[in-house]
Design a protein around this nucleic acid. Structure first.
Length: 216
DNA sequence: ATGGAGATGCTCT
DNA sequence: GAGCATCTCCATA
């Protein structure tokens, strides 16, 4: 079965999410993603923190705010695909595309708990540097999560609905009362919308850092 | 614990 | 040229 071979550490009976799941606005999909498990080859991550990005022209913090460009084209494609972008000259971040073709909305994967393939994730996170990384920090932060799952620009546009190398499984969603929300991290506009969602008291949620303009 | 600054390159104006 | 959906190291306390 498709969900087998993912490491055997996943909840029994956890099935892949269908494309319909993602065919909704990002702010609606985002809280529903908490507790789900995204899996790429040997590594699986239980999502504990996500951030939604809304409609073109309506959400100034979204990459799609000013319309379609070569970089954000995947966001305007069909739902249930990965949008991976390169930022700060050194990091990748991964989103799940929401809403149908022609509308650019999505959810940034901000943090999670590695529930399978921790050795592979650790090797990726420590490659080429004499650095030590704790289990909690393996996928704590959007760029770290992308490294742990092995996402780079090659994965931009990849379908996450079966069959395929990447899947999002049902997992074990938190109780509604455990879902928190607040302003998004690191964005210079759109701070009115509380579209960052996380699981209360989960140690793998990233520390909140408000946006600070760079000095020259 | 908290804060500052550097690294580094792509995208869009 | 400006600004970035960030991370890590180092300083101070």
């Amino acid at each position: 079965m498709w969900a087998d071979g993912l490491g055997g550490h996943l909840p029994a009976g956890s099935a892949p999410l269908t494309r319909e799941f993602f065919d909704r606005p990002g702010p609606e999909v985002a809280p529903d993603l908490l507790g789900r498990v995204i899996s790429h080859g040997p590594v699986s991550v239980r999502l504990t923190e996500v951030e939604a990005y809304g409609m073109p022209g309506e959400d100034p913090a979204s990459h799609t705010y000013r319309g379609r460009t070569p970089r954000n084209a995947v966001m305007f494609g069909p739902p249930g695909h990965l949008y991976v972008y390169f930022t700060y000259g050194m990091h990748f971040c991964a989103n799940l595309v929401c809403l149908p073709e022609g509308v650019g909305s999505g959810v940034l994967l901000r943090a999670g708990e590695v529930v399978a393939g921790a050795e592979v994730a650790l090797a990726r996170r420590t490659a080429g540097a004499g650095r030590t990384v704790t289990a909690r920090d393996l996928a704590r932060g959007p760029a770290r999560l992308a490294v742990a799952l092995g996402f780079t620009r090659e994965h931009d546009g990849l379908d996450v609905c079966p069959p395929g190398p990447v899947g999002v499984l049902e997992g074990d969603p938190p109780k509604p009362g455990a879902i928190m929300s607040g302003p998004r991290t690191g964005v210079s506009s759109g701070q009115e919308t509380p579209w960052r969602f996380w699981i209360a008291a989960d140690p793998t949620v990233s520390p909140y850092r408000p946006h600070v303009p760079r000095r020259r």
